[in-house]
Design a protein around this nucleic acid. Structure first.
Lengths: 337, 337
DNA sequence: CTGTTAGCGCCTTCAG
DNA sequence: CTGAAGGCGCTAACAG
């Protein structure tokens, strides 16, 4: 910076003013141009570490994930967060903990030591977390997780809305006997999706039939097995809502083995919109998207909006329907009620 | 730090010595203990931004990806890189470019401005890249990509080795009529895998039969279509090596539709070991793993080993076979040669 | 409209 | 064995 000043024949201060184009302390256009030329000539770039030291803002945000490796989910959250941060001139310091509380603590400290402006916690599967107290030193927002007393603002997928949307997609196609293969019992996602399913049926004036709700576990096998059971019944459902895409893949197989076709003979809807799976199934699977990218965006947007302190304890991000080719009209009018 | 010194009754210098436990400038055990207690009491943590300014090392490494969102791949590379960096007390500054050269340039500068100690470039799909010259200011290593003149060291998956391993897995099970459904023509991965396939067959003394090599495009549909063609032949292959897992999924469907079973009637091997797909297929797919995690590790290890400058232009990371349940013994001895 | 001065928090000679 | 002084690169008061 001193070099730039020397070359332009001004003081370092003036250079600083020009670089940060501060309008308050009016620099003459001529000087300004002179400085800019010197900057260009020398290829000068300000040292952010020094800036951070002085300004107490590093233009860096810490993002802590559970387990980035396992699924594309963490990647999408990071991408969403990154895009917004980038637009504001910030970058992400990304760290992985393997849910190990000691590592989480250590990570928060490492981030804080590097003077991050804010921290985002992102979980793969929705769950309760207990971030270390130290994180409170900077604005903190939770993505896809929440604390016991709702002590930190968080954003969660609107699972109930997604369950409703999936069910309504089927309802709109004329289906009335819609089975639901749930995910793992007790999982936060499972409960929400079920609530949406039940509500949608109720709104459509369809009597609740617990026989149509089978318990799966999110694995392909359970989708396959439960679908076989369903197809073996005297009165079959005309559509199946699967608690996730992998179970839907299992369902596809059971349907094929029974000599039936999707969607001609039976309609299927998944959940998650798992990349490289839902779109690649034959026929492409209609499903509901888990808004990881959007949640990542949201978190960073709140940070830049400076609204973190005043945020409601929970914000729900919609799970939009992704219509592909696995839902068809109900055809068995003869058999249904 | 001054506070700590005051509390311990020593100068800031002494505190610094204790914190960085410098053995050269011998601090008495008593003083040392005193300082450590003060640090503990005050919850003092050194400011890395200030340290970085002084030491010219920020304990931060920049990691630039192509498109983190699309697949789990980038996530695995990040995880591998992170784990090694963490072990050395460093953190990753992660940034995404969407292959846009202007964004890539800008990102490199943002990273350099933040004084990263090194830069890693990671691509999703193996390809040629042209990183901005500016990156040379710090050690730079490429993951899953390479430059035109091999001007920067890189690590790539050993696709030929993987193609060979997949083929040998089938050969070992007794198969001799092994078809290969390739990925997109011209893709770097496709060529390497094919080379390995051809070499393995040659080594086994099996005459080359170009009729067994069908061109696919990495999408599920092509795996399905090519497999149908294969199954319609008078003399069928007893095993199929698919250029990736998605095509293997398509192959599974064609096999099922033909009333055949994997692996009883026909064996199938995939490539990529795509999470949440290969392991979830029924039967679980035997495949070859793309070593993203390992390549991420490798890159950071080189950086800490200080060997970046002396590295060979290309290093190949093995693609290990992942045996699951889709390969069985050849049963049609009657029909084969 | 521009320059001087004084740190941000830390590390590193160099004296004692 | 420990402390004082100086500076990493930058910005914010405060003068002029």
């Amino acid at each position: 910076m001193a070099d730039v000043g020397r070359l332009a024949g001004v003081s370092p201060t003036t250079v600083s003013f020009v670089i940060n184009n501060r309008t308050d302390s009016g620099i003459s256009p001529a000087t300004r141009k002179l400085v800019l030329e010197a900057v260009e000539l020398l290829g000068y770039r300000p040292n952010r570490a020094a800036q951070g030291l002085r300004r107490r803002r590093t233009q860096t945000i810490g993002l802590i994930t559970d387990q980035a490796a396992v699924s594309p989910h963490a990647g999408r959250t990071i991408a969403g967060a990154h895009d917004v941060a980038w637009k504001h001139g910030s970058l992400l310091l990304v760290a992985n903990t393997n849910k190990d509380p000691k590592v989480v603590r250590a990570t928060v400290h490492e981030l804080l030591d590097r003077q991050v402006d804010a921290i985002v916690f992102a979980a793969e599967g929705t769950r309760r977390v207990t971030p270390p107290e130290a994180a409170r030193q900077v604005p903190t927002v939770l993505v896809n997780c929440f604390t016991a007393g709702n002590t930190l603002p968080c954003v969660l997928p609107d699972e109930a809305g997604g369950g409703r949307a999936a069910t309504e997609l089927l309802l709109a196609a004329g289906h009335r006997r819609i089975a639901y293969i749930t995910g793992m019992r007790g999982a936060w996602a499972t409960r929400g999706r079920l609530r949406g399913y039940v509500a949608a049926l109720a709104d459509a004036g369809i009597a609740r039939d617990d026989g149509l709700v089978l318990v799966g576990n999110f694995r392909t096998d359970s989708g396959y097995e439960r679908t076989r059971e369903l197809l073996a019944r005297r009165v079959r459902p005309t559509a199946i809502f699967c608690g996730n895409d992998r179970m839907a893949m299992g369902a596809y197989q059971a349907v094929a083995e029974a000599g039936l076709r999707v969607p001609e003979d039976i309609s299927i809807v998944g959940y998650d919109d798992q990349e490289d799976l839902a779109a690649e199934l034959r026929p492409p699977l209609s499903t509901v998207r888990l808004p990881y990218y959007e949640m990542g965006r949201w978190a960073i947007e709140q940070i830049f909006a400076g609204t973190v302190a005043t945020l409601p304890s929970r914000t729900y991000e919609p799970c939009p329907v992704v219509s592909r080719g696995s839902v068809g009209p109900r055809l068995d009018t003869a058999v249904s009620i």
